[in-house]
Simulated scan of single mutants.
Amino acid sequence: MPTKRPFLLRELRSRLPSVDDRIRQLVDHGDPTEYEAIADALYRVFITTRNLAPSRNSTDCAIHPNGPVDPEPPTGWGHCLLCNSNRRVGDPRARQGAASAPNQYDVPPPPYSHELLLDRMRQINDTVFELHYRSPDQDFDIAADLVHGAFIIARELSRPRSSSRCPRHPGAPLDPAAPGGPRCLFCAAAETRRGAAPPPQIRDRERRLPLRRRRP
């Protein structure tokens, strides 16, 4: 059993209930600013669960195991961005390892919702409740994945939302008198302009040249 495991497990169980209570107390799915504070708290919980679980090599690189991941590694190269950058500039000392799948933490697929976050928190509570000092490393790995997924959901819910739910004008004001209920003010005004009669046009009069006076 690792030496720090009892301390970290006690820290995890002391931090988790307060975050769970804040999520359950949100009214009408909460405001993005409230989810921002929850995402910060969940990230601190994730750091604790990550330290409880065995270390992961996210880049499959012996030199930079926790370095940045190259989002587009060339064919046959590894996922370490630092080594790949050195290889791109022709550094002969750069690592020549073959590519393999990086071992990253769980990222749940969208769409993200408050119900999805609540369901993820129920899974976390059930998993942490079963943990003890001599639990296998696989159980701590599962807990780390679950907490990381909850952090991703809360982080996405903390992004600014569109008050008008209009894909063309995010955050636009609402027109309460628009046909069909409150709608995007900009789109409603554009439809009104298209349906209105065209404005009157002013035509220029033909200019007539002044008659030349005959000389006496």
Rank of each mutant, 00 (worst) to 15 (best):
M1T: 09
M1S: 10
M1H: 07
M1W: 04
T3P: 04
T3A: 15
K4E: 14
R5W: 10
R5M: 11
L8E: 06
E11M: 09
L16D: 01
R22E: 13
Q25H: 13
L26S: 11
D31C: 06
D31P: 00
E36S: 15
I38H: 02
F46S: 07
F46C: 02
I47T: 02
R50I: 02
N51A: 15
L52Y: 04
A53D: 00
P54R: 04
S55M: 14
S55Y: 04
R56M: 11
S58W: 10
S58K: 12
D60C: 13
G67F: 06
P68Q: 00
D70C: 04
D70I: 00
P71M: 11
P71S: 02
E72D: 15
E72W: 12
E72M: 14
P73E: 11
H79N: 03
H79L: 01
H79W: 00
C80L: 11
C80F: 06
L82G: 03
C83K: 04
P92W: 01
P92L: 06
R95D: 15
Q96T: 12
A99Q: 13
A99I: 12
A101S: 07
N103P: 05
Q104P: 02
Y105P: 01
Y105L: 15
D106T: 09
V107G: 00
P110H: 09
P110W: 06
S113M: 03
H114T: 06
E115W: 01
E115Y: 08
E115Q: 04
E115L: 10
E115H: 00
L116V: 01
L118I: 02
L118C: 08
D119C: 01
R120V: 01
Q123S: 10
T127C: 11
F129K: 02
E130L: 12
E130G: 03
E130N: 06
L131R: 02
R134Q: 13
R134Y: 14
R134K: 12
S135E: 00
P136I: 07
D137P: 02
D141S: 15
I142W: 10
A144C: 09
L146Q: 01
A150C: 08
A150L: 04
S158M: 12
R159T: 09
R161S: 08
S162V: 02
S163W: 06
S164G: 10
S164F: 07
R165D: 14
R168V: 09
P170M: 12
A172M: 07
L174M: 13
G180I: 01
G181V: 08
R183F: 01
R183P: 00
L185P: 00
F186H: 12
C187P: 02
E191C: 01
T192Y: 12
T192E: 15
R193M: 05
R194M: 14
A196P: 03
P199H: 06
P200K: 00
R205D: 10
R207L: 12
R212F: 06
R214G: 10
R214A: 11
R215E: 12
R215C: 05
